[in-house]
């Protein structure tokens, strides 16, 4: 078995483990973490596919997926902290902490 096939298999084993955590995951945070890590693995898969198909421009797409993944995770976590997307994460000076119930 070649190096590339071994790398592919290792990635998929990692994603399957994360999928199991996502399906069963007792708490919300297990699931958020699983989704975030699956996104990271997908970025590596895309880089691997770009390498295999001799299309280095796939790395740009992979970077973009990483950015979207990061923003989505922040949005989900903010939602669970404040139960709303409308409260700003940066508090203006002198304002009291709100929404953190």
């Amino acid at each position: 078995m070649s190096l590339l096939a071994a790398a592919t298999l290792a990635l998929f084993v990692a994603i399957v483990l994360l999928l199991i955590r996502l399906f069963s995951g007792p708490t919300l945070y297990d699931r958020v973490l699983a989704v975030n890590s699956i996104g990271t693995k997908i970025v590596v898969v895309l880089a691997l596919v770009g390498f295999l198909m001799d299309r280095p421009d796939f790395a740009d797409v992979a970077l973009l997926y990483a950015l979207i993944n990061f923003v989505a995770t922040i949005a989900i976590l903010k939602f669970f902290r404040y139960r709303s997307f409308q409260i700003s994460l940066v508090k203006p000076e002198g304002e009291k902490k709100r929404g953190a119930q």
């Binding site: 590339l4 096939a5 592919t8 990635l11 998929f12 994603i15 898969v45 596919v49 295999l52």
Partner: peptide, 16 residues
């Protein structure tokens, strides 16, 4: 080798 890996990725992504 490249073909094997591409087939593995195809099967993996679709089955997941």
């Amino acid at each position: 080798d490249i073909e094997l890996s591409v087939v593995l990725i195809d099967i993996g992504v679709l089955s997941m």
